[in-house]
Amino acid sequence: MKEIENLSNYAEVEAFINEHELSFLYVSRPDCSVCHAILPKLRALLEHFPQMKLGQVNALQVEEVAGHLSIFTAPTLLLFVKGKEYLREDRFVRFADLEEKLARIYEFYTSD
């Protein structure tokens, strides 16, 4: 399973996004059953992309994440490349489609 970094305030979220060339942010809520179901699948999927870093944010704990990143539902999955948002998936995620999108982006940014 992909290692996950828990981010407990918005300063940590910003630092995570800016410190990693490929940063994947998972915004969830503890009372969200969909969030609990998706996380293990996401961690398994991201194992195929070793240079992508995974960070998790509890939207109830870090409330300002919603305003800063325009998040209206949980879970929200965001991929940032060099600090800019490149991909967003909300609530119900089609993992086959997500894997295809991630593979294209990953190949483009990691090929020499």
Rank of each mutant, 00 (worst) to 15 (best):
F16I: 02
V81G: 06
F24K: 01
V81F: 02
E12W: 00
F72R: 12
A44F: 02
D112P: 15
A11H: 08
L77R: 05
A103Y: 08
N58L: 01
I17G: 08
I17P: 02
L46A: 03
L54H: 06
G67R: 06
E47D: 13
N9Q: 01
P50L: 08
K2I: 05
F108V: 14
R104P: 00
L79G: 02
S111D: 11
R104D: 14
L77G: 03
H20N: 14
A44I: 07
Y10V: 10
E3H: 08
L78M: 06
K82C: 09
E85V: 04
V13C: 13
G83C: 07
Q51R: 09
A96E: 12
E47T: 12
L60R: 13
F72H: 10
T110S: 05
K2P: 01
R43Q: 10
V65G: 02
E3L: 11
I17V: 06
V62Y: 03
S28E: 14
A59V: 11
P75E: 03
M52K: 05
H68E: 15
L60F: 09
E89M: 11
V81Q: 09
V27F: 02
I4V: 12
R104S: 14
N9Y: 05
D90V: 03
E63K: 14
L54N: 05
V81T: 06
A66C: 14
V34F: 06
L87C: 06
L25A: 04
D31C: 10
S28T: 15
C32E: 04
C35H: 04
L102K: 01
F16A: 08
A44Q: 07
R43V: 01
P30I: 09
E21V: 11
L25P: 02
T110L: 04
E85I: 03
I105R: 07
R104A: 15
T110P: 05
A103G: 11
L25V: 10
E100V: 07
T73P: 03
L102Y: 00
